[in-house]
Structure formats: C-alpha cells, structure tokens
Amino acid sequence: MSEQQIEELEKELAQLVEAEIPAHPAQDIHDALQVADKLESKGFSFALKDMCPKSLSETMWRATFSKDGAEFAAEHTHSAVAVCTAAVGALKN
C-alpha cells in the first residue's frame, strides 16, 4: 500500500470514527489498537490474528470487527493497516 493510500485510509477513518483518534493509526499498531478500542466502545467485538504464526519471513494479519451478526475483516502484511481497513469497512456498514 502506498504512502498516499495509507494517508487516504487514515483520513477516511478519522471521518468515520467521529471521535479523536491518533494521527497515524495505519502506521503504528499501538495507535491502531486505540481505534479498535473506540469501535469496541460502540459495541463491536475485535480480533487480530497472525495468519503466518510459524513463518520467520512472511507476515499476514487478519483484523476482524463484528457486530449484530455482521463481520468486517481485512488482511494485510502490516497489522495496523489490517486493523484500520477492517475498521473502515465496519463503520461504513
């Protein structure tokens, strides 16, 4: 994902959350987890799974938000991007 795409993702996320979020949640997992906390306070459940737990060279993360039987998930090599992408999907629906 390019730097511009990450900036667009963060901008869209900030508009959808309707609360103050860290400046760069798609670039830092600690900031992304703060966003996940905000969604959990809105009734979403959250899970982050390492899809390559035994690999020393490959990474893939799956972030999932669910609410009222609906599930919104995203996978990415960077955990923070996966969390933010899944959060945008959850908030758009």
Score class of each variant (00 low, 15 high):
17 V>K: 06
91 L>V: 05
46 F>Q: 01
6 I>V: 15
63 A>T: 03
38 K>V: 10
45 S>V: 06
76 H>N: 15
27 Q>K: 10
64 T>I: 13
21 I>C: 06
86 A>P: 00
16 L>T: 05
86 A>W: 00
4 Q>F: 06
57 S>H: 08
54 K>M: 08
84 C>E: 00
91 L>T: 02
79 S>V: 03
6 I>C: 15
49 K>W: 05
50 D>L: 09
51 M>Y: 08
74 A>D: 07
44 F>V: 09
34 Q>V: 10
50 D>G: 07
88 V>K: 00
85 T>W: 01
10 E>D: 14
7 E>F: 09
75 E>L: 05
86 A>N: 02
85 T>K: 12
77 T>P: 00
81 V>G: 01
74 A>F: 08
43 G>A: 06
69 G>H: 07
14 A>P: 02
82 A>E: 01
59 T>E: 13
59 T>Y: 10
46 F>A: 04
18 E>D: 14
55 S>C: 11
76 H>A: 13
91 L>E: 01
81 V>I: 13
75 E>Y: 07
71 E>Q: 14
32 A>L: 02
67 K>R: 13
43 G>L: 06
13 L>D: 00
62 R>L: 10
91 L>Q: 02
80 A>W: 01
52 C>K: 15
66 S>G: 08
16 L>V: 07
44 F>E: 02
39 L>D: 00
18 E>P: 03
29 I>S: 03
73 A>Y: 03
15 Q>G: 15
91 L>Y: 06
79 S>D: 07
88 V>A: 01
60 M>R: 11
48 L>I: 11
92 K>G: 12
67 K>I: 05
47 A>T: 14
3 E>Y: 10
39 L>N: 01
46 F>S: 03
57 S>W: 02
46 F>G: 02
57 S>R: 06
27 Q>A: 12
8 E>H: 09
80 A>Y: 01
38 K>W: 05
21 I>F: 02
41 S>M: 12
53 P>W: 04
36 A>Q: 03
4 Q>E: 10
42 K>N: 04
52 C>Q: 14
66 S>K: 08
91 L>N: 03
3 E>K: 13
15 Q>C: 15
49 K>Y: 08
5 Q>Y: 09
89 G>M: 11
35 V>K: 03
14 A>E: 08
59 T>L: 13
46 F>Y: 11
23 A>K: 09
71 E>D: 15
92 K>V: 13
77 T>E: 12
81 V>R: 00
47 A>Q: 12
11 K>S: 15
86 A>R: 00
42 K>F: 06
68 D>A: 14
53 P>E: 07
82 A>Q: 02
75 E>R: 05
47 A>G: 15
42 K>P: 01
46 F>K: 00
67 K>S: 06
86 A>Q: 01
5 Q>D: 15
83 V>W: 00
81 V>D: 00
1 M>K: 15
92 K>T: 14
80 A>V: 07
